[in-house]
Design a binder for these strands. Structure first.
Lengths: 351, 351
DNA sequence: TTTAGCACTCCATATCCCTGAGTGCTAAAG
DNA sequence: CTTTAGCACTCAGGGATATGGAGTGCTAAA
């Protein structure tokens, strides 16, 4: 049996009707929607074929048909049309991203919220550096005779600081010396290298001095760790409840828990190879158990030259893929464009 | 009619049974639980009285009784026993709070998460300064010939920094001058005073210099605003779904939305006068419409001398008040103790 | 190959009934 | 005067049973 053009048209119609209604689609509905001049009986025959081919499923005898994951896959690969964004939507997106003064994290967070609002699905966001980050420079600022501020700037222009409290007093010159040591020995090192260098230093330094060095370096290492950690944020989880497939709590709860736990521990499938910038995972294509009945649409964007982010939408397999991908790719493009502007990567602000 | 001791005992029993079962309580159940040697008939009479007095409600004729908000109020005010925390729980709390290296925000966030886990209810947290914050000092650090880092330290020892990019080059001496101006004119001012001073300065300064000053001061004002803004965080919203009263989505959705929106815009009822450190709002005592069928238990804690935080639990009016208040007050005490240790307020780290 | 027609299937919904828990009242007992 | 046993009454919840309608598959004719 062959997948004729007419069969494809019917499949497309079924997917789109099902996306809109969330209910099994019968031959009559297809006849109305797809303006093929064909009787319901013919459509029934075709539908029977499509079922046999594995593109459709039947919840029970004498119910309409529902697209199978394979059916969705064919749909997003071949059949899906481009979806247009309304003026209102593009405007909303642009507004959300045009908050220049804000920090990187905030922008990404906000982007997630807005995307969630206009798509009516939960959204997750993530940003990860493309390469190992190192410290670019250290600065130390005296504030009282027994406290100073350590300022650490990384090579992706993130600046962080920490107030350090000391057991005993320190002169300006001592502080300057400390600064020299830090800048000469720890700049340009990766996390592991810093740890190593610190270990070596321990044996051949005065214990007092070493303690201070250690404090600052440890802090710098925290910063690096935090920056390279792929923290996933989620937004709009409650949108799940708007979709009929999650009206039963048994379905909704595990997924909601999964998504909200996701904030710590990166369990989300942020698998997006470097070359592709849009990926759709349909139902069982998701490795994770909690996502078996769920689809994930995700896109990547670049943050300057050093970082890469992923932003994705989570929803039922019956998701409006056309709409979602349109919004998502617009979003990802906007983010890339926005972060690409400055010569320096994002870190316009600290965070 | 009078509220005899026996009536109180019966009321207490009813509240506790209802808290445990979430179903209307009949006279038989009361007879078993409260070991008053009294027949069900007598209890029925008493229950009728309690209903008339407004402490109980009847969903429909011939159903058991359910405590009214007034009934809960009496219960938490007078009848409720002390609840003990298990070893495991105290240990868990202590572990969660003992992450010294972390930032203030993180600790509070984490506290919310843990409290949510051990109480099975959603939790919100908030921290607000007791008085107006001002900037304690400015520092400027040259990084490239056309960029510097501005470091702002507030009088509650929060340190924040920002990378400032300039149109044209700046010498070290110019930077020093800028620093002097900032430190002499803007230290110790509140948000409004800073704005005023900045306005005055505009007329009588060189435009180029003013632009730079303005940039830094504007950033400082952002910091102050952010610090005084009472940002509310929530955790464990999905716990709502575990409780029968939110098994219907109609009930769950509005509340969940309310709580997750709450992250921006402080709409939560963080009304806690300075003298009280624990407050319980039962059902209709909540002003907000979305919380009409919901109870809020909250406690305050001190962050050093300058800030005050609120941490609270949200749940159905049928909430295990004894258990929740026990955990909550332990938490609040621990937080106060923890933040009280250092001589300086929290800002050990920037954020 | 398409289509009309028809019998059949099965879900969803409404209806009914029944059971059991719980009440309120009354009258007797303490 | 208070407590208690007894009894009739109420009502929500659940199961069983109809009913309607949407949809299918098949057959036979166009």
């Amino acid at each position: 049996m062959e997948l004729t053009n007419r069969k494809k048209k019917i499949l497309r119609a079924i997917v789109e009707i099902y996306i809109a209604t969330a209910e099994p689609v019968g031959s009559k509905a297809v006849a109305q929607q797809a303006n093929l001049d064909i009787s319901t009986a013919t459509i029934r025959n075709e539908m029977a074929d499509l079922t046999e081919l594995g593109y459709l499923e039947q919840p029970h005898t004498s119910a309409g048909r529902v697209p199978s994951p394979v059916g969705y896959r064919l749909y997003v690969n071949e059949l899906m049309g481009e979806h247009q964004l309304t003026m209102q939507e593009t405007q909303r997106i642009n507004e959300a991203l045009n908050l220049k003064m804000e920090e990187l994290d905030r922008v990404i967070d906000r982007a997630g919220k807005v995307l969630s609002q206009i798509s009516d699905y939960p959204v997750f966001t993530m940003a990860a550096p493309k390469k190992r980050i190192t410290v670019k420079r250290f600065d130390l600022l005296m504030v009282e005779e027994n406290a100073f501020i350590a300022v650490v700037m990384t090579d992706n222009s993130i600046v962080k600081n920490k107030l350090v409290r000391m057991p005993d007093q320190l002169s300006d010159t001592q502080l300057q010396l400390l600064s020299t040591v830090l800048n000469s020995s720890f700049v340009g090192l990766t996390l592991e290298e810093m740890e190593q260098t610190l270990d070596q230093m321990e044996t051949r330094s005065a214990p007092g001095a070493f303690q201070l060095i250690s404090l600052v370096v440890q802090f710098a290492m925290e910063v690096l760790k935090e920056q390279s950690g792929q923290t996933v944020h989620t937004a709009g989880i409650t949108h799940l409840l708007e979709h009929p497939e999650y009206h039963s709590l048994d379905k909704a709860k595990p997924l909601m828990n999964y998504l909200s736990d996701g904030q710590e521990g990166t369990k989300l499938p942020v698998t997006l190879s470097a070359d592709q910038n849009m990926n759709i995972l349909i139902g069982p294509e998701n490795v994770n158990e909690a996502l078996k009945d769920t689809s994930v649409v995700m896109a990547s964007y670049d943050i300057g030259d050093n970082m890469r982010g992923v932003i994705g939408v989570v929803g039922p397999t019956r998701m409006d893929y056309a709409k979602v991908t349109a919004r998502l790719s617009y979003f990802a493009d906007s983010l890339t464009r926005m972060f690409g502007k400055g010569e320096l990567p994002p870190g316009e602000d600290e965070e």
